[in-house]
Structures are given as C-alpha cells and as structure tokens.
Design a protein around this nucleic acid. Structure first.
Length: 309
DNA sequence: GTTTAATGGGTAT
DNA sequence: TACCCCTTAAACT
C-alpha cells in the first residue's frame, strides 16, 4: 500500500519487467476496457513515479496515469509457462513474456497526454526520492510552509508542499524528530525542516529498497547493513534512479535469479514508534501514545516527547 | 454474515 | 466538515 516509496519501487519494477517490450493489456474486471485497448501491444518506453503518481509512458505520446489512492494495489509477479488466471477485481492486467502486473482498487487509471502529465506534475511539491534533481529541493517546501496558517502535520500530508509522504511516514518522522505535530508550519525552523527532509530522503529510499516502511532505528541499522553488503557504494547507489531492490528474503532482486522484484511485504516485521499505537506506552518516555484525525487521517503522536519546546 | 478500517484524494456543502 | 470513489481482509455479531 501506497506512499511514495511504493510508487517508486513499482516504477523501477515495471521498468525492469516491461520497458522496451509490448505487453498485452486487458481489463479482466471490465472497467478499463477502452483504455486497455489503447495500450495493448504498444511499446512501453519507460515507467516513472513522481510523489504518489505513477506514469507508464508508451510510444506515440500515450501515457497511462495510475494513482493507487488509499487501497489500490499493483502486483507485479513473475511466471513461467502458463499465465496465471487473474484473481479478484483486476481493473488492468499487463502480460509480458515472464511477468504479469495486476492492478486493483486504484482511484485513478486513465490515458493522458504529455501536457496533462505535466499539469499533474506541476501541482506537486518536491519529492524526497528525487532530491538533487530539478526543482526538487526542500527550499520549495519551506517557501510554501512559510505562507500557510496550517499546522506542520497538515502540510506534511499536502502533496503540493512535499510529494510522496503519507500518513505513516508523517507520524513516524514527526516522532523521530520530536516535533509537535500541531505547531504552525511557519514556525518550524528551516534547519529542523532540512533535517527532516534529509531523513525522509533516507527513509523513503530504504522503503523503496525493501518494499516496506521502516522507521525504527534498530531496523534501519539492519537495513543499511544489508544494503552495504549488497553494494559497496550503496550509500548513494540507493538514491535516485539507482535504487537497489531487495526481495522479501533480503536478497538483491537482481541476484535472486530473476524472481519478481515486487512483494507486498518485506523482510522486517511491522514495527513503529507511534503509528497505530494509540493508548500504548511510548518506547522512549512511557506516556500513552495519542491519536486524532488531522488532514483526514489518523495522526498518532507522543504528547510528551513531541511537546512544543 | 456484516461492519470497519486501511500507507489517498477529489468534490460538494 | 462531510461524503464520495476504489477493494480487501480483519474484526465484529
């Protein structure tokens, strides 16, 4: 399920599975029949992610735009021999020589023009997974934050301020930096925000590599250790477009014998500092984790560790 | 068997 | 702020 790391991992996975080929497209569920017909057998040039938006660019300026929304899933799996039958409400299926991609539950599945794609991108704030590239600098987010009366927790969910961060990364990164979620965004010190940005660049990249959100320090240390073992230059290799993909057993996907790169869950058990821990004791100070709906989603935070200073 | 919640986001009120 | 869309699985009765 989808925050920015999911879409970037999918873009890389789809690129490896289908770019340069002409996958067959269909809509087993029947709700994307016309769109599927437009891309069926068409050459896929590349797959790209920006924030939580995914684009499959086919030849002839035909672009498939996918947004998974809250519950959408895009499964990419490998097969040999017979193509497996679709299970459930598969709105779009792509079939290649050795891979099948099944899309379910997405809020946006549509064919767009390059101009429409550009218009979508123009509405997005900087994406930490594209840090260091054109107009993806944190200063742009800071400028937006300085002009709003909203709380920091609200702006972290606003894709036009910062692209790719969702509710889980929001809760956890606020805790990691001991920031009061209800502090007005304009009062956050730039140095504090830049530290948070750098942390998000690291956290999201690790999320891409493992296909899961990892925010607990002991798990992060293990994750970084695995990445170092896979690639001596991992410290910058897992940034930008040279991200290492690790399968569910912690193996480098490329070295795992062509096994499917994308798995629904990674090798680490789900464990978070505050997310969905309402009423439980904070691991740091012991006080009870609290929750409240902020920007339409359940925010979780420690009222003591994240008290305004 | 039915209800609810889930890592989103758009539109109406 | 409310309600809508998308789908599935876990948590209820």
């Amino acid at each position: 399920m989808p925050e920015g790391h999911t879409l970037h991992r999918l873009a890389l996975t789809l690129d490896r599975a289908f770019a340069g080929t002409r996958p067959r497209a269909s809509s087993p569920q029947g709700r994307f029949v016309d769109g599927a017909a437009l891309i069926d057998g068409r050459l896929l040039e590349r797959a790209e992610a920006w924030g939580k938006h995914l684009f499959l660019v086919f030849e002839g300026d035909v672009i498939l735009n996918i947004h998974l929304g809250l519950i959408g899933v895009l499964d990419v799996t490998g097969y040999e021999g017979v193509v497996p039958a679709p299970v459930g409400a598969v709105r779009l299926r792509l079939v290649g020589e050795r891979h099948v991609a099944d899309l379910r539950g997405a809020t946006v599945v549509e064919i767009v023009t390059p101009e429409e794609m550009d218009a979508t991108l123009a509405r997005l704030g900087p994406d930490p997974l594209r840090a260091g590239t054109e107009s993806n600098e944190p200063e742009r987010a800071l400028a937006r934050m300085a002009r709003t009366g909203r709380t920091f927790a609200e702006t972290l969910m606003d894709q036009s301020v910062i692209a790719g961060v969702g509710n889980l990364y929001r809760c956890e990164v606020l805790f990691r930096h001991r920031v009061d979620p209800f502090r007005p965004a304009k009062e956050i010190r730039p140095a504090t925000f830049l530290r948070i940005w750098d942390d998000l660049v690291d956290l999201l990249a690790i999320g891409v590599a493992f296909g899961q959100i990892i925010t607990m320090e002991h798990q992060l240390e293990e994750a970084r250790e695995i990445l170092r073992g896979l690639d001596e230059s991992a410290s910058d290799a897992y940034r930008h477009h040279r991200l290492t993909l690790v399968d569910w057993q912690g193996r480098d996907e490329a070295e795992a014998g062509g096994r499917p790169a994308y798995e629904r869950s990674g090798p680490f058990p789900r464990e978070y500092a505050v997310y969905q821990r309402n009423g439980e004791a904070c691991y740091t100070c012991g006080s009870r984790i609290r929750t409240r709906v902020v920007a339409g989603r359940n925010l979780f935070w420690c009222g003591r560790c994240q008290r305004r200073r």
